Amino acid sequence: MRRSILATAVLCAAWPMMSTAAGPTQVYGAWHCSDDMCTWGVPRTVAEFDAKNHWLIDRGDGRPSVNLVVLSFVHPLKLLNETTDATTLNGVPRGMTPQMVNYFTSRNVRVMLSIGGITYVDAWNQALAQDATLFGLRAAQLANALGVGIEIDYEENSDPDLVGLQVFITAYRSVIPYDATGSNPAARLTIDLAAGDRWLIDIGRKATRDWLRTNAPVLDYANAMVPAKQPSATSAIANWKEHIDGKSRYNPVYPPLAPAKFTAGLYLAGANRARPECNKFAASLQKSTGSFVTTAAPNGAGTTPGLLGYMFWAAERPSRGTTTQPPNGCEAGVGAGATTYDIPIPMPALRQQ
């Protein structure tokens, strides 16, 4: 299914003509890994956390740089079993405290917790096999207890347990129904998909067909995650357009996804250095891809132009040996983008179509 270089060039050269209208950028957020490589295993004081993360709540003029922070990651099996150990208390990472949630929500920044990640694929499989219903109920219980949304990050590329995942979602929604207004933070339930349509195919197909429909939504939206490395603008747009177009030649067909039902993922840092996404908006991908993200036309699903917005991977320390951006260091990238795109804070009710 590899697209030729020429075809990609033609496709991406043509995208500015897709739509003359622009949809509002409503989601502008960051995944957050704490300072321990996405474990969130140690409680932190607000003062210490703020010293390293102040840029998220202050772009330099007192306004937040983002309107969403996703604390990453909750261990699926530990959540199901309500495990208590050195890094976890009753199934919840010890660093994901009400104080950390309040740090953001008191500034009108929405908070979600991500369950899973690439490290916890086996744990997702085990939790779904053990008791998918109770797993979904535990997730809803956590969401209600902290007043946060939940992100499903189930990265099983080979034979995912789609039946179990459906049971998990059904159980969650039995406690916290879908809320189009967005007024209940715990009702926000999202899913992570691949950057395009050629990885996590079974999960992406199922989510697009059954859970992200505009006429019968079950999940609020999806995140098109970052690829293996920061893409060029051309490659990023080609990936995101795959979601909009779907894959009609796949068997079964991978249906198109409404632009208003997903966000675009970009890296903040890599190779021990901050990227322009963090510190130089003028040279960043959120600038060079901005016209596409705000004007991309539906192609078989949805009616309004433009993706929901951007998500950035990842604040603080997502991997060993990585310092990511310096403390308080992304005002000139993400913060400037928030100003340029007039990001609403707090996040408004999201476009549904």
Rank of each mutant, 00 (worst) to 15 (best):
D50P: 14
A129W: 00
M311K: 03
N125K: 14
F104S: 02
I5T: 08
F262R: 03
D50G: 06
N125E: 02
S284P: 03
D192R: 12
N67Y: 05
M17P: 00
D220Y: 08
S288F: 11
S174H: 14
A145T: 09
I57N: 07
A140Y: 05
Q166C: 03
E316M: 06
Q230N: 14
P76E: 07
S106W: 07
I203Q: 08
A30N: 09
A296N: 12
P185N: 01
G182N: 02
A283W: 03
A123H: 02
K287P: 05
T294P: 07
A314W: 00
A7T: 10
T25E: 07
N328G: 11
M18A: 09
A127T: 00
G117N: 11
S183H: 00
P177S: 06
W15L: 06
L11C: 01
G136I: 05
L266R: 04
S183W: 01
T339W: 02
R249W: 14
S19P: 08
E155N: 08
Q141G: 11
A238G: 00
T97D: 01
E331K: 15
A332D: 02
L193G: 10
Q141E: 10
G196T: 07
G23K: 09
L56R: 08
A186D: 04
D202N: 15
I115T: 05
D179F: 02
M1G: 14
A127R: 01
L56G: 09
N102T: 11
D131I: 01
L308Q: 06
R351C: 06
F73N: 04
T88Y: 00
T8Q: 13
P76H: 04
S114R: 04
L68S: 05
D85L: 03
L285G: 11
A216W: 04
L56T: 14
A145W: 12
Y341C: 06
A297Y: 04
Y28T: 07
T83N: 00
T170S: 11
T303V: 06
L6Y: 09
R110V: 02
V10I: 15
C33E: 04
R2V: 14
F73P: 07
L193K: 06
T214A: 09
G333L: 01
L128S: 04
T324W: 12
L146P: 02
L165P: 10
A51L: 08
T294M: 11
L285H: 13
V42R: 08
S232M: 14
R138H: 06
G321S: 05
M96V: 08
P298C: 09
Q352S: 08
